[in-house]
């Protein structure tokens, strides 16, 4: 895929325009011209989306690790529990699935690329790739090995195909050796990929 728009140096001007960039400018100007929204609305929306980073998901996970009653609420109603921490996730319906010593969860969307965007931002390219979407449901253990994750026979792999109105977040297990850590320090271990289920939080080696 050729990308003509370099992220740097674009600064409101781009030449030459790719066909789809041209379409973006075209639709934006037409819709603004019709008064459906303003250029400012577009900028605000972009800024809002840019502010949605996996740090939000990590904060939710870290709270669940340190507060058992919060974890219970999170597993019962994911969206409401996120709102509790001040994250506006409406209208997303979040289902949080918990990893345990016996169960590992992993998220995919085989039909498109559904993803808990209000908590994790825009999904990475590989999540939207044909390889991931096709294979994760059929050979999850093999795909997880491609992410360097190997699970024993005693662990059940639960694949969640995100097909309709729910969105999913994996609650990873709190790593050993983090006793007494603050929430912020715990959150620093929680990567985006660990909340999709293709990685595990790891305590950095000294």
């Amino acid at each position: 895929m050729k990308r003509t728009a370099a992220k740097k140096g674009e600064q409101g001007r781009y030449a030459p325009l790719s066909y789809f960039q041209l379409m973006e400018v075209t639709l934006r100007e037409l819709l603004v011209g019709k008064g459906l929204f303003s250029e400012d609305d577009v900028r605000r929306q972009v800024a809002d989306m840019a502010s949605r980073t996996p740090g939000r998901g990590a904060a939710v996970v870290a709270r669940a690790w340190t507060d058992a009653s919060y974890k219970e609420r999170l597993l019962k109603d994911g969206s409401a529990a996120c709102e509790e921490l001040g994250f506006d996730v409406k209208p997303m319906r979040l289902v949080v699935v918990e990893n345990t010593p016996r169960v590992h969860n992993v998220i995919v969307c085989t039909l498109c690329s559904c993803y808990p965007r209000p908590l994790l931002g825009i999904p990475p390219d590989w999540y939207k790739s044909r390889a991931y979407r096709s294979r994760m449901v059929r050979e999850p253990r093999k795909v997880l090995r491609e992410f360097s994750l190997k699970f024993g026979r005693e662990i059940q792999i639960r694949v969640h195909d995100s097909t309709a109105d729910m969105r999913y977040l994996v609650l990873p297990m709190r790593p050993a050796g983090t006793e007494g850590w603050t929430e912020a320090r715990l959150a620093s271990l929680v990567t985006r990929d660990s909340m999709i289920g293709v990685a595990l939080p790891r305590v950095p080696r000294r």
Binding site: R3, Q21, E24, L27, V42, V46, M49, P124, D125, W126
Partner: peptide, 15 residues
């Protein structure tokens, strides 16, 4: 694979 989204891609998302 990942890439940093270009400004125009973020604007498509916004639209």
């Amino acid at each position: 694979k990942e890439h940093a989204y270009a400004d125009w891609e973020m604007r498509v998302d916004a639209l």
